[in-house]
């Protein structure tokens, strides 16, 4: 059974792209094929870059006989292709009347996914918001729906944490910024590329997201 938990982002430069992807590896499998390589700087920008301490390319957690590895992209070609299709679908094809509601879809080629989208407000972004989506993908339809409630519950909780923290940070900044000089000035609103790490002011955010994804996968 293979699972992938992905944080996907609609990048202003690169379009739909994956930022971090956690996969499960059975202990018997060869780990080396799962580690990520250094992504060339031309194909990522700051807002879709996988930024972890010590310039690592992979995060690893072992729990029992399962190992969880997070990289920016899955290194396996078919998985990468399937995940790209899935992310394309989430950001450009599928529609959902309410962004906060989860969306599930799947086929026998790209796997079966549940996604939960969210937006972070950012004055420096185009349209003043940045779109993200947490996507849970599985290669077994039955397994996905068997665990649907648990997965969805944790996805909702994570999205809630991220959006609350972001709102909190924005609220704090606005309180401190009672400066009429910058009010309605263009300068501060120039489009700027920003990572979610900056938006959440947490340098270890991806490490924690990896830990969250591993803990969730460990329960399935």
């Amino acid at each position: 059974m293979s699972f992938m938990i992905t944080l996907a982002h609609f990048c202003e430069v690169h379009g739909p792209s994956m930022v971090i992807c956690t996969q499960n590896v059975h202990s018997g499998e060869l780990l080396d094929s799962y580690y990520g390589a250094k992504v060339p700087p031309s194909s990522v920008c700051k807002s879709c870059e996988f930024i972890v301490p010590q310039e690592s390319t992979s995060l690893r957690t072992q729990s029992g006989d399962q190992i969880y590895i997070s990289t920016q992209h899955p290194s396996s070609q078919p998985r990468y292709a399937a995940l790209r299709q899935t992310i394309m679908r989430v950001f450009t094809i599928e529609s959902n009347h309410d962004m906060n509601k989860p969306l599930s879809f799947g086929d026998s080629k790209n796997g079966y996914s549940v996604s939960l989208g969210f937006k972070l407000i950012d004055d420096t972004a185009r349209g003043s918001e940045r779109r993200y989506s947490l996507i849970f993908t599985c290669d077994s339809e039955q397994k996905l729906y068997e665990n649907y409630s648990v997965i969805l519950d944790q996805l909702i909780a994570m999205v809630k944490y991220i959006t609350t923290r972001s709102m909190h940070i924005i609220g704090n900044r606005r309180k401190n910024e009672n400066n009429n000089e910058t009010y309605l000035r263009r300068g501060s609103r120039m489009p700027k590329i920003k990572s979610i790490i900056e938006l959440l002011q947490d340098d270890n955010f991806f490490v924690k997201l990896h830990l969250w994804a591993s803990s969730l996968l460990d329960q399935l």
């Binding site: 080396d32 580690y35 990520g36 390589a37 972890v52 301490p53 010590q54 310039e55 690592s56 390319t57 992979s58 995060l59 690893r60 957690t61 072992q62 729990s63 490490v207 990896h210 830990l211 591993s214 803990s215 460990d218």
Partner: peptide, 10 residues
């Protein structure tokens, strides 16, 4: 030469 970080499980 792959840089991997080990993270303790929760």
């Amino acid at each position: 030469g792959v840089k991997v970080l080990d993270i303790a499980p929760l």
